[in-house]
């Protein structure tokens, strides 16, 4: 299956090219665009990004595997990022994780999400849900349907 950027993303890429001294700088923006467009980053998409950024495909692949937020495999489940770092841990992230196990979601145990003052936190579709309790977790996940 081959990959093509949709029209909106093609326009975005053209605009971005003018904002950087080198096309290679577009590799992260392009990886994000692919992920939002397709849900994950396929090897075909990496080849297309390689062309857009005038960078070897291997380099794009290396970049994609370096950053934890890029997904190279598709999933049908909803991804839920749960912070496991210290402040969240001190404020009950273990209970959040336990509660999430009861739901059909893909839980990713991630490092600090920058919500230490409103811990514990989880992130779904780029939105942070803070000051969580198991009850809140249930309500939020139920609300996703």
């Amino acid at each position: 299956m081959s990959f093509c950027f949709n029209d909106a993303n093609v326009a975005k890429i053209e605009a971005l090219k003018k904002r950087y001294p080198s096309a290679q700088a577009l590799s992260l923006p392009c990886l994000w665009m692919v992920q939002y467009q397709e849900g994950y980053i396929s090897l075909d998409a990496i080849d297309v990004i390689a062309e857009v950024t005038d960078t070897p495909a291997m380099e794009i692949y290396r970049v994609a595997t370096f950053y934890t937020m890029f997904h190279l495999e598709p999933t049908t489940q909803k991804r839920v990022l749960v912070c496991k770092t210290l402040s969240c841990k001190l404020c009950g992230s273990d209970a959040v994780l336990e509660q999430l196990k009861k739901h059909d979601v893909l839980v990713e145990h991630v490092e600090c999400l920058g919500s230490c003052g409103t811990a514990p936190v989880m992130q779904i579709d780029d939105v942070n849900y803070e000051n969580l309790t198991p009850t809140k977790v249930d309500a939020i996940v139920e609300g996703l349907r």
């Binding site: 990496i46 495909a57 291997m58 380099e59 692949y61 290396r62 595997t65 370096f66």
Partner: peptide, 17 residues
């Protein structure tokens, strides 16, 4: 450009695509 180090930390490894 066939080879690259992918992943990071102690999970990093040499690989082709």
């Amino acid at each position: 450009h066939e080879l690259g180090i992918i992943g990071r930390g102690d999970e990093a490894k040499v690989s082709t695509m």
